[in-house]
Design a protein around this nucleic acid. Structure first.
Length: 495
RNA sequence: GGUCGCGUGGCCGAGUGGUUAGGCAGAGGUCUGCAAAACCUCGUACGGUGGUUCGAAUCCACUCGCGACCUCCA
Protein backbone atom coordinates (compact mmCIF):
# COMPACT_ATOMS: atom_id res chain seq x y z
CA UNK A 1 0.00 0.00 0.00
CA UNK A 2 1.50 3.30 -1.03
CA UNK A 3 1.40 5.97 1.63
CA UNK A 4 2.02 9.68 1.32
CA UNK A 5 3.61 10.90 4.52
CA UNK A 6 3.34 14.55 5.39
CA UNK A 7 5.44 15.97 8.19
CA UNK A 8 5.58 19.37 9.79
CA UNK A 9 8.87 21.07 9.10
CA UNK A 10 9.92 23.61 11.71
CA UNK A 11 12.11 25.27 9.10
CA UNK A 12 9.23 26.17 6.79
CA UNK A 13 6.51 26.02 9.45
CA UNK A 14 4.24 23.89 7.35
CA UNK A 15 3.47 20.30 6.59
CA UNK A 16 5.41 18.92 3.66
CA UNK A 17 5.34 15.65 1.77
CA UNK A 18 8.29 13.57 2.90
CA UNK A 19 10.85 13.11 0.13
CA UNK A 20 14.20 11.61 1.10
CA UNK A 21 17.37 12.90 -0.57
CA UNK A 22 18.50 9.43 -1.62
CA UNK A 23 15.68 6.93 -1.45
CA UNK A 24 15.36 4.29 -0.22
CA UNK A 25 17.88 5.56 2.33
CA UNK A 26 16.89 7.93 5.07
CA UNK A 27 19.22 9.68 7.47
CA UNK A 28 17.82 10.83 10.76
CA UNK A 29 19.52 12.54 13.69
CA UNK A 30 18.11 13.16 17.13
CA UNK A 31 19.72 15.19 19.87
CA UNK A 32 19.95 12.74 22.74
CA UNK A 33 20.39 13.35 26.43
CA UNK A 34 23.08 15.16 28.33
CA UNK A 35 24.00 12.43 30.77
CA UNK A 36 24.32 14.25 34.06
CA UNK A 37 21.05 13.14 35.65
CA UNK A 38 18.44 10.45 35.55
CA UNK A 39 16.06 10.44 32.59
CA UNK A 40 12.65 12.01 33.19
CA UNK A 41 9.39 12.12 31.30
CA UNK A 42 10.70 14.76 28.92
CA UNK A 43 13.44 12.45 27.71
CA UNK A 44 10.85 9.76 27.22
CA UNK A 45 8.71 12.03 25.11
CA UNK A 46 11.49 12.93 22.70
CA UNK A 47 12.69 9.35 22.41
CA UNK A 48 9.20 7.96 21.88
CA UNK A 49 8.26 10.65 19.37
CA UNK A 50 11.21 9.83 17.17
CA UNK A 51 10.83 6.13 17.83
CA UNK A 52 7.48 6.40 16.07
CA UNK A 53 9.12 8.22 13.17
CA UNK A 54 11.84 5.56 13.01
CA UNK A 55 9.33 2.72 13.14
CA UNK A 56 7.02 4.19 10.52
CA UNK A 57 9.78 5.01 8.05
CA UNK A 58 10.99 1.44 8.34
CA UNK A 59 7.42 0.26 7.89
CA UNK A 60 7.38 2.24 4.63
CA UNK A 61 10.41 0.17 3.60
CA UNK A 62 12.94 2.95 3.89
CA UNK A 63 16.41 1.96 4.95
CA UNK A 64 16.82 4.26 7.89
CA UNK A 65 20.04 5.14 9.62
CA UNK A 66 18.99 6.65 12.92
CA UNK A 67 21.67 8.44 14.92
CA UNK A 68 20.99 9.56 18.46
CA UNK A 69 23.90 11.01 20.35
CA UNK A 70 24.93 10.92 23.97
CA UNK A 71 26.24 14.23 25.25
CA UNK A 72 28.87 13.23 27.77
CA UNK A 73 30.89 16.40 27.48
CA UNK A 74 28.63 18.76 29.36
CA UNK A 75 27.58 22.10 28.10
CA UNK A 76 28.92 25.19 29.75
CA UNK A 77 27.14 26.43 32.78
CA UNK A 78 26.14 30.07 32.77
CA UNK A 79 27.78 32.53 35.13
CA UNK A 80 30.79 30.30 35.63
CA UNK A 81 33.70 32.04 34.03
CA UNK A 82 35.97 29.11 34.70
CA UNK A 83 33.75 27.18 32.32
CA UNK A 84 32.96 24.16 34.39
CA UNK A 85 30.62 21.89 32.56
CA UNK A 86 27.56 20.03 33.74
CA UNK A 87 29.10 16.60 33.79
CA UNK A 88 32.05 17.85 35.74
CA UNK A 89 29.86 19.69 38.25
CA UNK A 90 27.84 16.59 38.87
CA UNK A 91 31.04 14.58 39.15
CA UNK A 92 32.38 16.86 41.85
CA UNK A 93 29.09 16.64 43.64
CA UNK A 94 29.27 12.86 43.56
CA UNK A 95 33.06 12.78 44.03
CA UNK A 96 33.67 10.47 41.13
CA UNK A 97 35.29 10.73 37.73
CA UNK A 98 33.26 12.64 35.13
CA UNK A 99 33.30 9.68 32.80
CA UNK A 100 31.91 7.51 35.57
CA UNK A 101 29.00 9.90 35.97
CA UNK A 102 28.40 9.94 32.24
CA UNK A 103 28.53 6.17 32.07
CA UNK A 104 26.10 5.70 34.92
CA UNK A 105 23.48 8.01 33.49
CA UNK A 106 24.01 6.64 30.01
CA UNK A 107 23.29 3.18 31.37
CA UNK A 108 20.18 4.45 33.12
CA UNK A 109 19.00 6.19 29.99
CA UNK A 110 19.41 3.06 27.88
CA UNK A 111 17.71 0.92 30.48
CA UNK A 112 14.74 3.28 30.73
CA UNK A 113 14.44 3.51 26.96
CA UNK A 114 14.42 -0.24 26.69
CA UNK A 115 11.72 -0.44 29.33
CA UNK A 116 9.67 1.98 27.29
CA UNK A 117 10.17 -0.26 24.26
CA UNK A 118 12.06 2.48 22.41
CA UNK A 119 14.08 0.83 19.67
CA UNK A 120 17.82 1.41 19.94
CA UNK A 121 19.11 3.80 17.28
CA UNK A 122 21.35 2.55 14.49
CA UNK A 123 24.28 4.47 15.92
CA UNK A 124 24.59 6.05 19.34
CA UNK A 125 27.79 8.10 19.33
CA UNK A 126 29.07 10.02 22.30
CA UNK A 127 30.68 13.42 22.15
CA UNK A 128 33.80 12.45 24.07
CA UNK A 129 34.55 9.79 21.47
CA UNK A 130 34.53 12.31 18.65
CA UNK A 131 36.90 15.03 19.73
CA UNK A 132 39.13 14.75 16.62
CA UNK A 133 36.10 15.10 14.35
CA UNK A 134 34.99 18.17 16.24
CA UNK A 135 38.44 19.72 16.08
CA UNK A 136 38.60 19.04 12.35
CA UNK A 137 35.29 20.75 11.82
CA UNK A 138 36.30 23.77 13.87
CA UNK A 139 39.47 24.04 11.79
CA UNK A 140 37.39 24.13 8.64
CA UNK A 141 35.16 26.85 10.03
CA UNK A 142 38.26 28.90 10.84
CA UNK A 143 39.70 28.23 7.38
CA UNK A 144 36.49 29.44 5.81
CA UNK A 145 36.70 32.61 7.84
CA UNK A 146 33.72 32.14 10.11
CA UNK A 147 35.52 31.71 13.40
CA UNK A 148 38.30 33.39 15.31
CA UNK A 149 40.70 32.35 18.06
CA UNK A 150 41.06 34.29 21.29
CA UNK A 151 43.45 33.10 23.98
CA UNK A 152 43.03 29.37 23.40
CA UNK A 153 39.28 29.54 22.68
CA UNK A 154 37.53 29.55 19.34
CA UNK A 155 34.33 31.47 18.65
CA UNK A 156 31.91 31.43 15.79
CA UNK A 157 31.72 34.85 14.10
CA UNK A 158 28.01 35.47 13.76
CA UNK A 159 28.37 38.90 12.20
CA UNK A 160 30.65 37.50 9.53
CA UNK A 161 28.25 34.69 8.87
CA UNK A 162 25.34 37.08 8.52
CA UNK A 163 27.09 38.71 5.57
CA UNK A 164 26.65 35.42 3.71
CA UNK A 165 23.51 33.94 5.21
CA UNK A 166 21.03 34.53 7.99
CA UNK A 167 21.88 33.17 11.43
CA UNK A 168 18.44 32.65 12.95
CA UNK A 169 16.47 31.28 10.02
CA UNK A 170 15.10 28.33 11.99
CA UNK A 171 13.86 30.35 14.95
CA UNK A 172 13.15 33.41 12.77
CA UNK A 173 15.13 35.74 14.89
CA UNK A 174 16.92 38.92 14.05
CA UNK A 175 19.80 38.31 16.37
CA UNK A 176 21.09 41.83 17.03
CA UNK A 177 17.65 43.11 17.97
CA UNK A 178 16.95 40.16 20.18
CA UNK A 179 20.18 40.61 22.04
CA UNK A 180 20.09 44.35 22.54
CA UNK A 181 18.53 44.09 25.98
CA UNK A 182 20.55 41.13 27.17
CA UNK A 183 23.30 41.48 29.70
CA UNK A 184 26.78 40.35 28.84
CA UNK A 185 27.58 37.10 30.55
CA UNK A 186 30.76 36.85 32.51
CA UNK A 187 32.32 34.05 30.49
CA UNK A 188 31.75 35.83 27.20
CA UNK A 189 34.17 38.62 27.88
CA UNK A 190 36.67 37.57 25.21
CA UNK A 191 34.13 37.37 22.41
CA UNK A 192 33.87 40.03 19.76
CA UNK A 193 30.09 40.06 20.02
CA UNK A 194 27.79 38.61 22.67
CA UNK A 195 25.96 36.60 20.00
CA UNK A 196 29.10 34.72 19.02
CA UNK A 197 29.17 31.24 20.46
CA UNK A 198 32.03 28.99 21.51
CA UNK A 199 33.31 26.23 19.27
CA UNK A 200 36.22 25.41 21.54
CA UNK A 201 36.88 26.54 25.09
CA UNK A 202 40.24 26.81 26.76
CA UNK A 203 40.41 24.67 29.89
CA UNK A 204 41.41 26.20 33.17
CA UNK A 205 43.74 24.21 35.43
CA UNK A 206 40.70 23.13 37.42
CA UNK A 207 38.97 21.62 34.44
CA UNK A 208 39.20 17.83 34.38
CA UNK A 209 37.58 17.04 31.05
CA UNK A 210 40.18 18.35 28.60
CA UNK A 211 41.76 17.47 25.32
CA UNK A 212 44.66 18.89 23.39
CA UNK A 213 43.90 20.85 20.27
CA UNK A 214 45.63 23.23 17.85
CA UNK A 215 44.53 26.01 20.21
CA UNK A 216 45.78 24.40 23.41
CA UNK A 217 44.19 22.27 26.10
CA UNK A 218 40.45 22.60 26.16
CA UNK A 219 37.10 21.09 25.39
CA UNK A 220 34.51 21.46 22.63
CA UNK A 221 31.78 24.06 22.82
CA UNK A 222 28.06 23.80 23.08
CA UNK A 223 26.93 22.74 19.69
CA UNK A 224 29.76 21.37 17.60
CA UNK A 225 29.37 17.73 18.62
CA UNK A 226 26.06 17.28 16.82
CA UNK A 227 27.39 18.88 13.66
CA UNK A 228 30.52 16.74 13.68
CA UNK A 229 28.81 13.45 14.50
CA UNK A 230 25.88 13.89 12.14
CA UNK A 231 28.31 14.72 9.32
CA UNK A 232 30.39 11.67 10.14
CA UNK A 233 27.56 9.16 10.19
CA UNK A 234 24.90 10.70 7.97
CA UNK A 235 26.92 12.77 5.54
CA UNK A 236 27.03 16.48 4.93
CA UNK A 237 23.35 16.61 4.29
CA UNK A 238 20.61 14.33 5.53
CA UNK A 239 16.84 14.08 5.78
CA UNK A 240 15.54 14.52 9.29
CA UNK A 241 16.88 16.30 12.32
CA UNK A 242 14.92 16.13 15.54
CA UNK A 243 14.93 17.29 19.10
CA UNK A 244 12.91 18.94 21.80
CA UNK A 245 11.48 22.38 21.16
CA UNK A 246 13.76 23.83 23.79
CA UNK A 247 16.72 22.96 21.57
CA UNK A 248 15.46 24.92 18.60
CA UNK A 249 17.32 28.00 19.70
CA UNK A 250 20.20 28.28 20.03
CA UNK A 251 21.34 24.67 19.65
CA UNK A 252 19.81 23.76 16.31
CA UNK A 253 20.36 27.22 14.95
CA UNK A 254 24.06 26.84 15.70
CA UNK A 255 24.19 23.41 14.13
CA UNK A 256 22.78 24.86 10.93
CA UNK A 257 25.35 27.63 10.65
CA UNK A 258 28.23 25.35 11.64
CA UNK A 259 27.35 22.95 8.83
CA UNK A 260 26.98 25.82 6.39
CA UNK A 261 30.27 27.37 7.49
CA UNK A 262 32.29 24.15 7.53
CA UNK A 263 30.70 22.03 4.81
CA UNK A 264 28.74 24.59 2.78
CA UNK A 265 25.60 22.49 2.98
CA UNK A 266 22.11 22.77 4.33
CA UNK A 267 22.27 20.40 7.24
CA UNK A 268 18.88 18.71 7.16
CA UNK A 269 15.79 18.88 4.98
CA UNK A 270 13.21 18.38 7.69
CA UNK A 271 13.43 19.71 11.22
CA UNK A 272 11.09 18.09 13.71
CA UNK A 273 10.55 19.32 17.23
CA UNK A 274 8.58 17.60 19.92
CA UNK A 275 6.78 19.81 22.40
CA UNK A 276 7.42 19.77 26.12
CA UNK A 277 5.83 18.00 29.03
CA UNK A 278 4.23 20.36 31.53
CA UNK A 279 3.31 19.95 35.15
CA UNK A 280 1.14 22.48 36.96
CA UNK A 281 1.11 24.52 33.80
CA UNK A 282 4.85 24.90 33.43
CA UNK A 283 7.58 23.02 31.65
CA UNK A 284 8.97 19.94 33.34
CA UNK A 285 12.71 20.33 33.24
CA UNK A 286 15.97 19.58 34.92
CA UNK A 287 16.77 23.17 35.69
CA UNK A 288 13.37 23.91 37.21
CA UNK A 289 13.65 20.90 39.48
CA UNK A 290 10.03 19.92 38.87
CA UNK A 291 10.79 16.80 36.88
CA UNK A 292 9.68 13.28 37.68
CA UNK A 293 12.17 10.63 36.69
CA UNK A 294 11.08 7.57 34.77
CA UNK A 295 12.16 5.31 37.61
CA UNK A 296 9.97 7.37 39.96
CA UNK A 297 7.00 6.74 37.67
CA UNK A 298 7.77 3.05 37.46
CA UNK A 299 8.04 2.66 41.23
CA UNK A 300 5.44 5.26 42.22
CA UNK A 301 7.91 6.87 44.57
CA UNK A 302 7.21 10.54 44.06
CA UNK A 303 5.03 12.99 45.92
CA UNK A 304 3.19 14.11 42.80
CA UNK A 305 1.96 10.63 41.86
CA UNK A 306 -0.18 8.23 43.81
CA UNK A 307 0.93 4.83 42.54
CA UNK A 308 3.36 3.18 40.12
CA UNK A 309 2.79 3.70 36.43
CA UNK A 310 4.24 1.07 34.16
CA UNK A 311 6.44 1.81 31.16
CA UNK A 312 3.65 0.97 28.73
CA UNK A 313 1.20 3.17 30.61
CA UNK A 314 3.66 6.01 30.21
CA UNK A 315 4.19 5.25 26.56
CA UNK A 316 0.43 5.25 26.02
CA UNK A 317 0.15 8.48 27.99
CA UNK A 318 2.64 10.16 25.68
CA UNK A 319 1.04 8.78 22.53
CA UNK A 320 -2.37 10.12 23.52
CA UNK A 321 -1.19 13.61 22.63
CA UNK A 322 0.16 14.81 19.32
CA UNK A 323 3.91 15.31 19.59
CA UNK A 324 3.74 19.02 18.75
CA UNK A 325 1.33 19.83 21.59
CA UNK A 326 2.31 20.31 25.18
CA UNK A 327 1.37 17.38 27.39
CA UNK A 328 0.12 18.04 30.88
CA UNK A 329 0.90 15.53 33.62
CA UNK A 330 -1.94 14.91 36.05
CA UNK A 331 -2.81 11.92 38.18
CA UNK A 332 -6.15 11.66 36.42
CA UNK A 333 -4.46 11.70 33.04
CA UNK A 334 -2.08 8.94 34.11
CA UNK A 335 -4.93 6.83 35.41
CA UNK A 336 -6.77 7.34 32.14
CA UNK A 337 -3.69 6.17 30.27
CA UNK A 338 -3.42 3.09 32.45
CA UNK A 339 -7.03 2.17 31.75
CA UNK A 340 -6.75 2.93 28.06
CA UNK A 341 -3.61 0.86 27.65
CA UNK A 342 -5.15 -2.01 29.57
CA UNK A 343 -8.24 -2.06 27.38
CA UNK A 344 -6.28 -1.89 24.18
CA UNK A 345 -3.98 -4.69 25.30
CA UNK A 346 -6.82 -6.91 26.47
CA UNK A 347 -8.36 -6.42 23.03
CA UNK A 348 -5.15 -7.62 21.51
CA UNK A 349 -5.41 -10.93 23.38
CA UNK A 350 -9.06 -11.34 22.49
CA UNK A 351 -8.33 -10.72 18.84
CA UNK A 352 -6.03 -13.73 18.78
CA UNK A 353 -8.82 -15.92 20.17
CA UNK A 354 -11.54 -14.95 17.73
CA UNK A 355 -12.61 -17.67 15.33
CA UNK A 356 -15.59 -18.66 13.23
CA UNK A 357 -17.52 -19.68 16.31
CA UNK A 358 -17.54 -16.14 17.59
CA UNK A 359 -17.42 -14.24 14.32
CA UNK A 360 -20.04 -14.55 11.58
CA UNK A 361 -17.73 -14.67 8.60
CA UNK A 362 -19.29 -14.25 5.21
CA UNK A 363 -17.89 -14.80 1.77
CA UNK A 364 -19.62 -11.71 0.49
CA UNK A 365 -19.69 -8.19 1.82
CA UNK A 366 -20.47 -8.19 5.51
CA UNK A 367 -22.56 -5.68 7.38
CA UNK A 368 -19.53 -4.56 9.41
CA UNK A 369 -17.12 -4.28 6.51
CA UNK A 370 -17.58 -0.64 5.71
CA UNK A 371 -17.11 0.53 9.30
CA UNK A 372 -14.00 -1.61 9.67
CA UNK A 373 -12.43 -0.35 6.47
CA UNK A 374 -13.10 3.21 7.54
CA UNK A 375 -11.49 2.74 10.96
CA UNK A 376 -8.44 1.09 9.40
CA UNK A 377 -8.10 3.84 6.82
CA UNK A 378 -8.39 6.42 9.60
CA UNK A 379 -5.32 4.94 11.27
CA UNK A 380 -3.27 5.31 8.11
CA UNK A 381 -4.56 8.81 7.47
CA UNK A 382 -3.58 9.72 11.01
CA UNK A 383 0.00 8.48 10.91
CA UNK A 384 0.53 10.01 7.47
CA UNK A 385 -0.68 13.33 8.81
CA UNK A 386 2.44 14.26 10.77
CA UNK A 387 2.38 11.18 13.00
CA UNK A 388 -0.92 11.91 14.70
CA UNK A 389 -0.77 9.18 17.32
CA UNK A 390 -3.80 10.57 19.18
CA UNK A 391 -5.94 9.94 16.13
CA UNK A 392 -4.45 6.49 15.64
CA UNK A 393 -5.52 5.56 19.14
CA UNK A 394 -9.03 6.81 18.41
CA UNK A 395 -9.11 4.53 15.37
CA UNK A 396 -7.87 1.57 17.39
CA UNK A 397 -10.49 2.12 20.06
CA UNK A 398 -13.16 2.04 17.38
CA UNK A 399 -11.80 -1.29 16.19
CA UNK A 400 -11.60 -2.49 19.77
CA UNK A 401 -15.35 -2.05 20.13
CA UNK A 402 -15.84 -4.58 17.34
CA UNK A 403 -13.42 -7.01 18.93
CA UNK A 404 -15.17 -6.80 22.28
CA UNK A 405 -18.53 -7.07 20.56
CA UNK A 406 -17.56 -10.37 18.98
CA UNK A 407 -16.03 -11.63 22.16
CA UNK A 408 -19.09 -11.03 24.31
CA UNK A 409 -21.51 -12.23 21.67
CA UNK A 410 -23.24 -8.97 20.81
CA UNK A 411 -21.90 -8.94 17.26
CA UNK A 412 -21.99 -12.69 16.82
CA UNK A 413 -24.71 -12.63 14.22
CA UNK A 414 -23.55 -9.55 12.36
CA UNK A 415 -21.63 -10.62 9.31
CA UNK A 416 -18.14 -9.60 8.35
CA UNK A 417 -16.16 -10.68 5.32
CA UNK A 418 -12.92 -12.52 5.97
CA UNK A 419 -11.14 -9.80 4.01
CA UNK A 420 -12.42 -7.09 6.31
CA UNK A 421 -11.72 -9.16 9.41
CA UNK A 422 -8.17 -9.85 8.31
CA UNK A 423 -7.63 -6.20 7.64
CA UNK A 424 -8.85 -5.38 11.12
CA UNK A 425 -6.52 -7.96 12.58
CA UNK A 426 -3.49 -6.76 10.67
CA UNK A 427 -4.22 -3.08 11.21
CA UNK A 428 -4.66 -3.55 14.94
CA UNK A 429 -1.41 -5.49 15.16
CA UNK A 430 0.54 -3.22 12.86
CA UNK A 431 -0.41 -0.01 14.59
CA UNK A 432 -0.50 -1.10 18.17
CA UNK A 433 2.50 -3.42 18.26
CA UNK A 434 4.74 -2.43 15.34
CA UNK A 435 4.17 1.31 14.97
CA UNK A 436 3.04 2.60 18.35
CA UNK A 437 5.35 0.09 20.01
CA UNK A 438 2.94 -0.96 22.74
CA UNK A 439 3.82 -4.37 24.07
CA UNK A 440 2.51 -6.78 26.60
CA UNK A 441 3.69 -6.46 30.16
CA UNK A 442 2.43 -9.90 31.02
CA UNK A 443 4.91 -12.29 32.62
CA UNK A 444 5.80 -15.38 30.63
CA UNK A 445 4.62 -17.97 33.15
CA UNK A 446 1.36 -16.18 33.79
CA UNK A 447 -0.59 -17.93 31.07
CA UNK A 448 -0.02 -21.44 32.42
CA UNK A 449 -0.62 -20.35 35.95
CA UNK A 450 -3.85 -18.68 35.01
CA UNK A 451 -5.00 -21.78 33.17
CA UNK A 452 -4.58 -23.76 36.35
CA UNK A 453 -6.37 -21.21 38.50
CA UNK A 454 -9.22 -21.00 36.05
CA UNK A 455 -9.75 -24.74 36.28
CA UNK A 456 -10.04 -24.54 40.04
CA UNK A 457 -12.33 -21.56 39.68
CA UNK A 458 -14.63 -23.38 37.32
CA UNK A 459 -14.86 -26.42 39.56
CA UNK A 460 -15.68 -24.26 42.54
CA UNK A 461 -18.25 -22.46 40.52
CA UNK A 462 -19.92 -25.67 39.37
CA UNK A 463 -20.21 -26.72 43.00
CA UNK A 464 -21.28 -23.24 44.11
CA UNK A 465 -18.43 -22.86 46.57
CA UNK A 466 -18.75 -19.11 46.51
CA UNK A 467 -16.33 -18.46 49.35
CA UNK A 468 -13.59 -20.08 47.36
CA UNK A 469 -14.55 -18.14 44.26
CA UNK A 470 -14.42 -14.87 46.10
CA UNK A 471 -11.08 -15.79 47.57
CA UNK A 472 -9.63 -16.47 44.13
CA UNK A 473 -11.02 -13.23 42.81
CA UNK A 474 -9.69 -11.15 45.67
CA UNK A 475 -6.26 -12.72 45.47
CA UNK A 476 -6.03 -12.12 41.76
CA UNK A 477 -7.39 -8.63 42.15
CA UNK A 478 -4.41 -7.74 44.31
CA UNK A 479 -2.18 -8.81 41.43
CA UNK A 480 -4.09 -6.63 38.99
CA UNK A 481 -5.92 -9.50 37.34
CA UNK A 482 -9.65 -9.98 36.96
CA UNK A 483 -11.50 -13.20 36.29
CA UNK A 484 -14.52 -12.64 34.10
CA UNK A 485 -17.54 -14.93 33.80
CA UNK A 486 -19.15 -15.09 30.42
CA UNK A 487 -22.12 -17.01 29.13
CA UNK A 488 -19.86 -19.41 27.31
CA UNK A 489 -16.98 -19.73 29.77
CA UNK A 490 -14.53 -17.63 31.70
CA UNK A 491 -11.46 -15.64 30.86
CA UNK A 492 -9.06 -13.30 32.55
CA UNK A 493 -7.81 -9.80 31.86
CA UNK A 494 -5.79 -7.04 33.38
CA UNK A 495 -7.72 -4.56 35.43
C1' G B 1 11.37 43.91 25.39
C1' G B 2 12.04 40.34 20.90
C1' U B 3 10.28 35.57 18.56
C1' C B 4 6.46 32.00 18.96
C1' G B 5 2.59 29.02 20.83
C1' C B 6 -1.68 27.85 23.66
C1' G B 7 -6.65 28.54 26.10
C1' U B 8 -11.91 22.61 23.94
C1' G B 9 -17.30 19.45 28.60
C1' G B 10 -14.87 17.02 35.86
C1' C B 11 -9.61 15.28 33.81
C1' C B 12 -6.30 14.10 29.54
C1' G B 13 -6.69 15.29 24.56
C1' A B 14 -7.81 15.30 18.67
C1' G B 15 -9.96 18.60 15.38
C1' U B 16 -9.20 23.97 12.20
C1' G B 17 -15.72 26.62 8.11
C1' G B 18 -21.24 22.69 7.99
C1' U B 19 -20.84 15.58 9.62
C1' U B 20 -20.26 11.63 17.10
C1' A B 21 -12.72 12.46 17.57
C1' G B 22 -10.99 9.15 21.28
C1' G B 23 -9.78 7.79 26.31
C1' C B 24 -10.65 8.37 31.68
C1' A B 25 -14.05 9.70 35.41
C1' G B 26 -19.56 10.12 36.36
C1' A B 27 -25.12 8.51 35.65
C1' G B 28 -28.68 4.76 33.89
C1' G B 29 -29.31 -0.08 31.60
C1' U B 30 -28.00 -5.41 29.82
C1' C B 31 -25.39 -9.63 31.90
C1' U B 32 -24.34 -11.93 36.90
C1' G B 33 -24.91 -15.90 43.22
C1' C B 34 -22.51 -11.22 44.11
C1' A B 35 -18.93 -9.01 41.21
C1' A B 36 -15.66 -7.72 37.36
C1' A B 37 -15.23 -6.98 32.34
C1' A B 38 -17.66 -5.90 28.05
C1' C B 39 -21.64 -3.77 25.45
C1' C B 40 -25.82 -0.02 24.96
C1' U B 41 -27.63 4.94 26.36
C1' C B 42 -26.48 9.80 28.51
C1' G B 43 -22.87 15.69 28.52
C1' U B 44 -25.41 19.82 23.23
C1' A B 45 -17.54 21.72 25.43
C1' C B 46 -14.76 25.00 22.51
C1' G B 47 -11.45 32.12 27.38
C1' G B 48 -14.22 37.04 26.33
C1' U B 49 -16.22 40.84 22.88
C1' G B 50 -17.10 42.27 18.07
C1' G B 51 -16.78 41.13 12.74
C1' U B 52 -16.79 38.10 7.92
C1' U B 53 -20.25 34.11 6.29
C1' C B 54 -26.31 31.00 4.61
C1' G B 55 -23.27 28.73 8.57
C1' A B 56 -17.32 29.41 13.02
C1' A B 57 -14.61 25.89 18.24
C1' U B 58 -12.35 26.39 13.28
C1' C B 59 -11.22 32.79 9.43
C1' C B 60 -10.35 38.32 10.95
C1' A B 61 -9.91 42.26 14.76
C1' C B 62 -9.57 43.58 19.61
C1' U B 63 -9.19 41.79 24.52
C1' C B 64 -8.20 38.69 28.98
C1' G B 65 -5.33 34.62 30.82
C1' C B 66 -1.32 30.98 30.50
C1' G B 67 3.16 29.17 28.67
C1' A B 68 7.90 28.31 25.68
C1' C B 69 12.50 30.20 23.72
C1' C B 70 15.90 34.45 23.93
C1' U B 71 21.15 30.92 29.48
C1' C B 72 22.02 24.57 30.06
C1' C B 73 17.58 21.79 29.01
C1' A B 74 13.97 16.36 25.59
Amino acid sequence: MHQILRIYNSLTRQKEVFQPLNPPFVGMYLCGPTVYGNPHLGHARAAITFDIVFRYLQHLKYKVRYVRNITDVGHLERDLDEGKDKIQQQAELEAVSPMEVAQRYTNNYRRNMQQLNVLPPSIEPCASGHIPEQIAMIKKIIEHGFAYVVDGSVYFDVAKYNQMDHYGKLSRRIIEAARSGTRALANQIDKKKPVDFALWKKATPMHIMRWSSPWGEGFPGWHIECSAMSAKYLGKQFDIHGGGMDLLFPHHECEIVQAQAALKTNLATYWLHNNLVTIDGVKMGKSLGNFITLDAFFTGKHLAIDQPYSPMTLRFFILQAHYRSTLSVTVEGLKAAHQGYRKLMNGWYLLAQLDDETVAFSTQNGALDEAIYEDCAACYRAINDDFNTAKILAGLFNLLKKINGWHNGILRDTSVSTTAFNQLRSTYATFMIDLLGLKEEREAATDQMMEMIQTIYQEAKAEKRYHQIDFIRHSLHKMGIAIQDHQNGICWAYQ
